[in-house]
Design a protein around this nucleic acid. Structure first.
Length: 475
RNA sequence: CGGGCUGUAGCGCAGUUGGUAGCGCGCAUGGUUCGGGACCAUGAGGUCGCCGGUUCAAGCCCGGCCAGCCCGACCA
């Protein structure tokens, strides 16, 4: 039977859920809000991990691991931090058959336990910088969950760095934002807007929060990664001071930054279509699949050829072959499209006789017949083309749906319509930000880093703007 | 935490005025097929979300509970 995917035009949310379930990326777990990542989804996460991890190492970071359970009192040391996270904590009160003296919080993020350790490890400027990342699971008891985008438990990485100077920490914050941006654009083919968060959107306990924001196909924004400049907030809360080179005593300057498996949600909602998943080749666990097409009398010849061809492909590519007898070629075509494999090779008796194979692109559906001998090279070119083309397509969609608004009426009109990213002047007042959210459901996604700065008047109150802000409805 | 919807085979669903459960897909076996989701035959698979009530009899009626998803407010 056709595994029907709800079309995007009919119900975008349901389309997203259908893709996740039917492309076998994940499934609902028995616990509310929790999700099982299936092998096809986990393979994607592993690709993300391996590339990002290499980028972190290149920028001087090392991996470590801190415990899942955090003494409840640690969370309370930083006032804003506890206020921000308290409502969504899972707390262990009993263990080993007894009530615990002090409840243990299942980490919603690891700043507090990490800074409690940094206190032991940092005495001198010679101990700095401390550049540590961890790959971990965290738990946040969210009211409303969505596969990959917001689950009760999720996998992520969190970098936590300690520096001797404010400037160095500020530089680190932006460096890692840059790493995220480059990773999103070059690897995931996601064009992202990099910028500063407004105070109301910043991380609980941060001085400044930066993020990268992608535009999904429904024109809503998705925060795809964050990098926080924490100032000396956590150093003060955990009393992490060090001897400076000059002999003085100073609190350490900090950053933290993270991306989660939410990136998979961003990938899906940016590139996929009504036939299923569409993956950028760089992230696709399988880059190319070979589908032999045969009748009874040609089966041996075709399968043998296809297997040989597959072996050649495997020398340089992540290649699979689907020579399962149970399904027809048409069924296989649809199935591999659903699973998002970027290039499909079709090999039948006609092709073999002509010394050709057919290459089918997942992103455009286009098919070309090429010489079998040069096909592996042609496939590699095609994969590169697909990678570029997906990025360009997404960027062009985003640019087409990015607007400037000079007045509240203009801004409102855009969000009364299809929405998108709207750049507008902002005076910096929380009342104006809240008023716009009230009227349009759009929030400030970012104050763009490459923005020309203040110009014109605030889109809400009309006073002199201090920054240009990008508004959008967000996930 | 509000609003909506839904719990019946692995999945999607039907089940009439209450009468003791069925369809499609999938799955298993065998055979025929195979260039865009093939077909035939045979077969396996169910404490109808849970508890209680009404009744000779409950998937269906009544009461309560639980769970899940989707939509909002809050968040990666």
């Amino acid at each position: 039977m056709a595994e029907r995917i709800t079309p995007r035009s009919q119900d975008y949310s349901q389309w997203y859920v259908d893709i996740v379930l039917k492309a076998k990326l994940a499934d609902y777990a028995p616990v509310k809000g929790c999700m099982v990542v299936r092998p096809r989804g986990y393979a994607l996460w592993e690709r993300i991990q391996s590339v990002l991890d290499a980028m972190f190492k290149e920028t001087g970071h090392s991996n470590a691991y801190f415990p899942l359970l955090i003494p409840e009192s640690f969370l309370k040391r930083e006032a804003e931090h506890v206020e921000g996270f308290a409502p969504e904590l899972a707390v262990v009160t009993h263990a080993g058959g007894e009530k615990l003296e002090e409840p243990l919080v299942v980490r919603p993020t690891s700043e507090t336990i990490i800074w409690s350790m940094y206190k032991k490890w940092v005495q001198s400027y010679r101990d700095l910088p401390l550049l540590i990342n961890q790959w971990a699971n965290v738990v946040r008891w969210e009211k409303r969950t969505r596969l990959f985008l917001r689950t009760t438990e999720f996998l992520w990485q969190e970098g936590h760095t300690a520096h001797a100077t404010e400037a160095e920490a500020a530089e680190e914050t932006l460096r890692m934002l840059g790493v995220y941006r480059r990773f999103a654009e070059e690897f995931l083919a996601l064009p992202v807007l990099a910028g500063l968060k407004s105070d109301s959107e910043k991380f609980a306990g941060a001085v400044r929060t930066y993020s990268i924001e992608g535009m999904m196909q429904d024109r809503r924004a998705l925060q795809a990664g964050t990098s926080h400049f924490l100032g000396q907030n956590f150093a003060k809360a955990f009393d992490v001071a060090f001897q400076t080179k000059e002999g003085g005593l100073d609190f350490v300057w900090a950053t933290s930054w993270g991306v989660s498996w939410r990136l998979l949600g961003a990938l899906i909602m940016t590139h996929s279509d009504d036939k299923g998943l569409v993956l950028p080749p760089a992230v696709a666990p399988t880059e190319v699949v070979v589908v032999p097409i045969y009748k009874n009398d040609t089966k041996d010849k075709v399968v043998e050829f296809a297997r040989g061809f597959h072996r050649r492909l495997r020398e340089h590519l992540r290649a699979e072959i689907d020579d399962d007898d149970a399904n027809s070629p048409g069924w296989k075509f649809s199935e591999w499209e659903l699973l998002g494999v970027p290039v499909r090779v079709e090999v039948g008796p006609r092709d073999i006789d002509a010394g050709k194979v057919v290459l089918a692109r997942r992103d455009t559906g286009e098919k070309i017949s090429v010489d079998a001998a040069s096909a592996p090279e042609r496939i590699r070119e095609l994969l590169a083309e697909i990678q570029t083309s997906l990025f360009e397509r997404a960027r062009s969609f985003r640019d087409k749906n990015t607007f400037k608004a000079e007045s509240f009426e203009e801004l409102k009109a855009i969000f009364d319509g299809e929405g998108g990213f709207v750049e507008a002047g902002w005076c910096g007042a929380v009342e104006c930000e809240a008023g716009i959210k009230e009227a349009t459901k759009a929030t400030i996604r970012a104050l763009p880093l490459d923005s020309p700065g203040a110009s014109g008047s605030c889109v809400s109150c009309g006073k002199q703007a201090v920054v240009r802000a990008v508004f959008a409805r967000a996930y």
